[in-house]
């Protein structure tokens, strides 16, 4: 007999992994976030970032933005698994749609004095970060932008006295006049 493959896919096939951003429009009802998160953990999907907030108060609709990664077949599964949840109205894969606008907000606390403090301030200006709290020993910056920009900013702040960070996770929306 030949060498077995697997009745259960045992062999971890090295598959190209992609990162996708999805927008999910859901009824804002109790448990809906647990359903979405439970789906991801139960089926072993990745969540790299997840944000949720009510976006249409009258209609009780919330919008969940999920950044996930996986091989193409899994990404397709994720979309269809989300679509069949009862309180889900629609799901779009913004990465497939292409060219979506993606933003994140971070609050960044940096402590230090002297040279480092001056350098932190100079870099913050270059990144168009706002100072929203300060003392003689610290700054709290507010920065918005693509995730890559925030990553870059944090990397630069690291040696300058980065204390802690709070990030919102990604919000995303498609370009053009249509709604999802």
């Amino acid at each position: 007999m030949t060498q077995p493959g697997s009745a259960y896919p045992l062999e971890k096939k090295e598959q190209r992994s992609e990162t996708h951003t999805m927008s999910v429009l859901v009824d804002n009802e109790p448990g809906v976030l647990a359903r979405v998160i439970g789906l991801f953990s139960g089926r072993g999907y990745n969540i790299e970032s997840l944000t949720v907030s009510e976006t249409e108060h009258e209609a009780h609709l919330s919008r969940i933005t999920i950044v996930t990664s996986g091989p193409p077949m899994v990404i397709e599964q994720i979309q269809h698994q989300l679509e069949r949840l009862v309180p889900v109205h629609s799901v779009i894969d913004l990465t497939v749609k292409g060219n979506a606008i993606e933003r994140e907000l971070a609050l960044v606390k940096v402590a230090g004095t002297g040279e480092k403090r001056v350098e932190a301030l100079r870099l913050a200006e270059a990144f168009r970060a706002k100072i929203i709290d300060t003392s003689l020993e610290h700054f709290v910056f507010e920065i918005t932008g693509k995730q890559s920009k925030i990553e870059q900013f944090l990397a630069l702040m690291q040696p300058l006295g980065l204390v802690e960070v709070s990030r919102t996770g990604l919000a995303a929306i498609s370009r053009g006049p249509e709604r999802m």
Partner: peptide, 24 residues
């Protein structure tokens, strides 16, 4: 059975009410 040896030469049509069953 073994998925990489499953019906290797066929074109497959799949009718299902559950979209997530397709291409799983």
């Amino acid at each position: 059975g073994r998925i990489d040896a499953f019906s290797p030469g066929s074109k497959k049509i799949h009718v299902d009410i559950d979209r997530s069953s397709i291409n799983k």
